[in-house]
């Protein structure tokens, strides 16, 4: 579904990603973990080209999207993204947030988009909030709207950039539950997260990044029980 080939990302003299080669398969749920500053978010943002890799290639459904001739907007329609700080559109109601892109980008009729939007809001448990503005919502509710907004484009893959890191502890579960439900639908997901229990329970595969390098990857059980690298062992000792 998505693969990267040797991608490196530099910000000035600072090399944030170092030669990462990875593949995410159809229907796979991959958790990307690692210490802060390890390049997890940058890696994720390279997958939908919110960051342009300094070198290397990114492939999405057999297309090389790092090719300069590719229309990024066309690609991004099919890649949903959820941000740490939600980034809902504050001047639109919850339903408008969800239906905006389908109407503008996919040229859906408003009634049709509303129907899809309401369905998705029901799925994330926010039917009663459709007419509210985002700043009336709690953090957990905002993030669920953000998930519904991304899903409204009917993407082939969903990217999550630390979706629960900005939430109060009591709101983490409601968001993780929505994400869990999503895995049941067979959605391909890449999740940058600090929620180790979630990664362990839900992910098919763990990618461990440290200092911009992909240090280790594997199934959750083996990764959490018997990490191969010293760095991963160290990290797990600290967070578990």
């Amino acid at each position: 579904m998505i693969s990267t080939q040797d991608i490196t990302k530099k910000f000035g003299d600072n090399t944030v990603l170092k030669n990462i080669t990875a593949t995410i398969g159809q229907g796979e749920v991959v958790a990307v973990i690692g210490p802060s500053g390890s390049g997890k978010s940058t890696f994720l943002r390279c997958l939908n080209l919110l960051e342009q890799p300094s070198s290397g290639k990114v492939w999405f459904q057999d297309q090389e999207i790092t090719n300069s001739k590719i229309n990024k907007m066309e690609i991004r329609k099919n890649i949903g993204m959820v941000f740490q700080h939600f980034h809902l559109f504050p001047h639109m109601t919850v339903l408008e947030n969800v239906t905006y892109a389908p109407i503008k980008v996919k040229k859906l009729k408003r009634e049709q988009a509303n129907e899809v939007g309401k369905e998705l809001l029901a799925k994330v448990g926010l039917t009663d909030k459709e007419a509210s503005y985002p700043n009336r919502l709690s953090g957990g509710q905002k993030q669920r709207v953000a998930i519904a907004r991304a899903l409204a484009m009917d993407p082939d893959v969903m990217l999550f950039d630390e979706p629960t890191s900005a939430l109060d502890p009591e709101m983490v579960k409601e968001v993780l539950d929505v994400m869990k439900d999503l895995t049941q639908t067979g959605m391909t997901m890449v999740v940058v997260t600090h929620e180790m229990n979630f990664a362990r329970e839900v992910a098919d595969r763990i990618m461990f990044l440290d200092d911009g390098k992909l240090m280790e990857e594997g199934e959750p059980e083996s990764f959490f029980m018997k990490p191969k690298t010293e760095r991963a062992k160290d990290f797990l000792d600290k967070v578990l």
Binding site: E74, R76, F83, H85, H87, L88, Y100, V105, A150, M153
Partner: peptide
């Protein structure tokens, strides 16, 4: 907030809209 631009871009919304 720069996040607004990113959120729009991530949804595939072109520059003008």
């Amino acid at each position: 907030d720069k996040g607004q631009t990113e959120a729009a871009e991530a949804l595939g919304v072109p520059y003008k809209p």
